[in-house]
Nucleic acid binder design. Sequence first.
DNA 1: CATATGATTCCA
DNA 2: GGAATCATATGA
Length: 197
Amino acid sequence: MTFSPPPLALPFFARDALVVARALIGARIVHRGKVARIVETEAYRGPKDLACHARAGLTKRTRALFGPPGRAYVFLVYGMYECFNVVCNEEGSGHAVLLRAAEPLGGFDERTEADGPGKLARAMKLGRALDGASLLEGDLHLLPREGRVRIGVSARVGVAYAGTWADKPWRFFDRDSDHVSRPPKSAIGRPRSKGHP
DNA sequence: CATATGATTCCA
DNA sequence: GGAATCATATGA
């Protein structure tokens, strides 16, 4: 019989989004019979972070973002893609971690890809219906990382409008994964090249 | 009420 | 390089 660790619990999520974003690289996400290994995340750190949706304060959209940690924050972007986040830190802080890419492990069609936030949410069926849903109980949860992982760091993607906040090194990824959404510009921590040695 | 835009992806 | 596509945020 296979040992299965318990899902990540409240104390894991009740920390700064920067800490949680790094800790989630290599963790697994489980939902409706699908399992995937998280290989890319980004931290969003509340109202002061001008790249974070929390900058607009508490609105209809950010209700879950300002809610308790350990729940989902899901939003629609560009009218057609959804982005799945895990709420972190303490209630009201507006911290969250965006899941940007994962390696499909089980329960997927053979050619399903999850190398991008929109594609990951679509592949795992993590739509807006889950906005505010708990990851601490029920059929949506995360499992701790097993083994070692080499973590790379870069600036966050797609937030150029945020001025200097766009340059913060708050994106994390598995340096050895072939399922990261895009190679970082920085030479440090670039994912293993597929073409050359 | 009107309008601009986005934590993206896919196509030319 | 540009389009697709629509809920939200913002300002009149």
